[in-house]
Design a protein around this nucleic acid. Structure first.
Lengths: 128, 128
DNA sequence: CAGTATCCAATATGATACTG
DNA sequence: CAGTATCATATTGGATACTG
């Protein structure tokens, strides 16, 4: 497999190219939240457990550079920023969905029903 | 999204769970070579550009622990080892194929025909 | 042939404090 | 609100030499 150079960066193969853009710990969680919604910085931070401010900022910047998400700044008071998927991002979400489904299956083979866990979590959140 | 614990390891979500098993730089290249063949350590090393001995060894060990590949040692002289996909590995190859296809598409949008590059490389190799 | 062992540099991530 | 800056730690990966 030959190497490929895109924007002065080297990739070993097509999988490598994809994983540089959506791999790592935080890109999928961010994109998943933006799947069908526009969200603000703070909303993303609240919605994603464990993520630090630093990693959220870094992840958003990389996704923006790769044209997977769009950043829009609203100068009106109070000022805020909104993030949403680009056309490329909407394509990529389909792939993340495929990876996620594979993960759900693999978890099931380990005896874990992840989607039931999510429902349970929501129910507990409502009780408060 | 709730955390999940499998084999005493924590995962943030299903995508995280998958990427721990097939993510990183070297797992896909190794699995791709084993797609339809059984290969020996040295054959893998020769087939995968840039991979170091250390990374090949580490990658193979992790894939084996996760039951994605099978390792068989032949004690006969000269001794050697063979690696092949397990049933789980054969399922996972389908996902890698999906990621790879997405990568090929994304590369095409950058004006790169990766599959043509592979053919070109093969042709040049035959000339020798 | 199929690895280990060791040293080292680069990157990823977290924690905390500060700012236009 | 949406970040930046700084410090510290853990993990990743490369290079090289050695081994049953």
């Amino acid at each position: 497999m030959p190497d490929v150079f895109i924007q002065n960066q080297r990739f070993y193969n097509p999988v490598d190219y994809v994983l540089q853009q959506i791999g790592g710990t935080w890109k999928a969680p961010v994109l998943w939240r933006l799947k069908s919604k526009t969200l603000r910085y703070t909303e993303l931070q609240k919605a994603i457990p464990h993520i630090s401010q630093k990693m959220l900022t870094k992840t958003l910047k990389e996704l923006e550079v790769d044209k997977i998400i769009n950043k829009q700044i609203f100068a009106k008071v109070p000022p805020h920023t909104e993030y949403c998927l680009t056309a490329k991002g909407k394509k990529i979400i389909l792939l993340i969905e495929a990876i996620r489904n594979a993960g759900l299956e693999l978890m099931k083979e380990e005896g874990i029903d992840y989607e039931a866990m999510i429902k349970e979590e929501k129910k507990n959140a409502e009780k408060k």
